[in-house]
Write a protein that binds this DNA or RNA. Structure first.
Length: 595
DNA sequence: CGCCTTTGACCCGCGC
DNA sequence: GCGCGGGTCAAAGGCG
């Protein structure tokens, strides 16, 4: 909705007919009298006591929303809150936060009530009588509205309580889920530890504190999780992907492969290993690719990376750079950075693996989002590349960008591509469809799930909001990068909500974010949805593939290194289109746009 | 001095 | 078996 819908010059005609305060009507533009640049109050005839049809016996308050800000805010509010038809406030100050749009509507009405609605000059007795007649019902209206206000406040408080209760339940469910998962793993281990074990479980150190380590790895993004333990001698698969930095690692692995047929129990062990390798082979290459417009060499995701290689990829004049996470020794997470061949302003970052170390908040957002996307792809790709499933996943990943969501989850190296390069029709400034990270988050221990969801939502949201792409990913961290200036207020509010301590009133924080920018509701809703509905996913994923997503996949880069063929592209309007493609190689993602 | 990037060489998987 | 392309290693050099 824009100015045109509100009437010429953004003028709103507010029907002052007796109806609950807070439900001011927007009169059709055609009924609006000539507009003025200043707020005016007009009275036509007497109040008939009902919502009178426009044009006759109507009392209307005409508010000129001349300023662009007001127009935008009003339009956005009207579009996002149908019950609150307008959040117009006489003062240019920021929209009311906290109690949300409903409260702001009520406040506005109170103000409006102070407007003298009495007609004419009322200079004689008849006029006074008429005024009195009008005033009495009006006072009734006021009291009624007051009651309604208190009722709504009570309702709001009730909803707050309920929200807290639900959050508690969610925490409980999460804990129970983790406990069950650990129990299951323990049972499987105790049960001969043979063919039934999922690959990841097999890769785990036998006697280590399985209870503590298992859950995370069990949910890990595949091979990476196994690789985390690869430093031990029990590594089973991914011979090439060992993260060890030792120069002899490759030789060791090769030797292992040559010796693979274990003389001890040749048939069984060999078959187990074969099975494990097959399963892992399909999983280990699971990747999450992020496409974003960026002039920066790499996107900042809060992690530290070290470049270990660069290659010219076929079909792309831009070299592909290989990075390894250096935040912890032996962290298996790697990423590839490459410019899109078609549009060099697009930076394609592909993540692989799961961090084996704590992540800073800034990295958490991205890690959670990408790991969730990867796990969704993995879970959907298992039954083979079913396009129905794939599309479903794509829509699940980014519900609001369904047009861009295509999934082909065929192995061997399924890749989830989060395409943030497609802006809304209006360009960078027009947030048409916000990214909706509907990802289920890899349930990190504790209640950080919600936190990460919100962060992911905020991160993606802000990445679109700001012109500096992924700068928003840092917003949750205390460090305010120079890009933070671009982060929208809604994003900041979202981050505030996400970073708020568990006991904080989430509703209030969310309301603040919504008030700051109603468009954020979309992302927030997606995040909440993922919290509530995503909890069940990890199990099937883990059980089917022996791995799901664990902590996030790493991404991020505070890296300073020159990225491959950095191009100067000032237009960094990120958008939220998720293109999930199954590609046997990374180059496929660069072409996903054309799909 | 330590960390990082660069870059050529090497290894591996895959297709022909 | 060979060639190609992707991915990784590690020596060399740069930088703070």
């Amino acid at each position: 909705m824009d100015k045109a819908h509100l009437g010429v010059g953004g003028l709103l005609a507010l029907d002052a007919s007796p109806r609950p305060l807070g439900f001011l009507n927007l009169l059709p533009p055609t009924t609006s009298p000539p507009f003025h640049r200043t707020r005016t109050t007009t009275m036509e005839a007497a109040d008939d006591g009902n919502g009178t049809p426009p044009g006759r016996g109507r009392r209307s308050i005409e508010v000129d929303f001349f300023s662009d800000d007001k127009d935008k805010k009003t339009a956005a509010a009207a579009a996002n809150n149908k019950t609150c038809r307008t959040t117009v406030s006489p003062d240019p100050g920021p929209p009311a936060a906290g109690s949300g749009s409903a409260a702001s509507c009520l406040a506005i009405k109170k103000e409006d009530l102070t407007i003298n609605l009495l007609p004419g000059t009322g200079s004689n007795a008849n006029d006074e009588e008429a005024a009195t007649r009008l005033r009495l019902p009006y006072q009734d209206k006021q009291s009624r509205n007051t009651n309604e206000l208190s009722a709504m406040q009570a309702e709001l408080a009730r909803m707050n309580d309920e929200n807290q209760r639900l959050r508690g339940m969610l925490t409980q469910v999460t804990s129970s889920y983790q406990a069950l998962q650990m129990h299951l793993v323990a049972l499987m281990q105790a049960r001969a530890g043979g063919p039934m074990l999922p690959p990841v479980a097999q890769a785990l150190p036998p006697a280590t504190d399985g209870a503590a380590v298992m859950p995370r790895q069990f949910l890990g993004l595949g091979p990476a999780a196994a690789e985390e333990t690869s430093n031990s001698s029990t590594e089973v698969g991914s011979p090439r992907r060992s993260s060890s930095t030792g120069g002899n690692r490759r030789q060791e692995l090769q030797a292992e492969r040559r010796d693979s047929p274990d003389p001890a129990d040749p048939s069984t062990t060999a078959r187990q290993q074969q099975l494990a390798q097959q399963q892992e082979a399909s999983m280990r290459k699971a990747r999450v690719s992020v496409r974003a417009r960026s002039e920066a060499p790499i996107i900042a995701d809060g992690c530290q990376w070290r470049k270990y290689g660069q290659k010219m990829a076929k079909g792309n004049p831009c070299p592909r750079a290989y990075y390894r996470c250096t935040m912890a020794n032996g962290c298996p997470v790697r990423k590839q950075v490459q410019r899109c061949a078609d549009d060099r302003s697009i930076l394609i970052t592909t993540y692989e693996g799961t961090h084996n170390h704590p992540l800073p908040p800034a990295a958490m957002a991205m890690a959670s989002t990408t790991s969730a996307a990867a796990s969704m792809l993995l879970s959907g790709s298992m039954p083979s590349g079913d396009m129905m499933t794939s599309n479903f996943l794509a829509r699940a990943v980014l519900p609001c960008s369904s047009s861009m969501a295509t999934i082909s989850a065929s192995a061997p190296f399924p890749t989830v591509t989060l395409d943030l390069t497609h802006g809304p029709p209006g360009g960078a400034g027009a947030p048409a469809a916000r990214p909706q990270p509907h990802f289920q988050v890899p349930q990190p221990p504790h209640q950080q799930v919600q936190h990460h969801h919100l962060q992911a939502a905020a991160a993606l949201y802000s990445s679109h909001q700001s012109s500096s792409k992924f700068s928003g990913l840092h917003m949750s961290s205390s460090s305010t990068s120079d890009n933070n200036n671009n982060v929208g207020t809604a994003s900041r509010a979202a981050v505030a909500a996400a970073d708020a301590p568990p006991h904080m009133d989430t509703v209030t924080a969310a309301a603040a974010a919504i008030t700051a920018d109603p468009n954020f509701t979309v992302a927030l809703a997606a995040a909440i949805t993922s919290i509530i509905g995503g909890g069940g996913h990890p199990i099937p994923i883990a059980m089917h593939q022996g791995q799901g997503q664990g902590q996030g996949q790493g991404q991020g880069q505070q890296q300073q290194g020159p990225t491959p063929t950095p191009t100067s592209n000032s237009n960094a309007n990120n958008n939220n289109n998720a293109v999930v493609t199954s590609s046997s190689n990374n180059t496929a993602t660069s072409n996903s746009e054309t799909q």
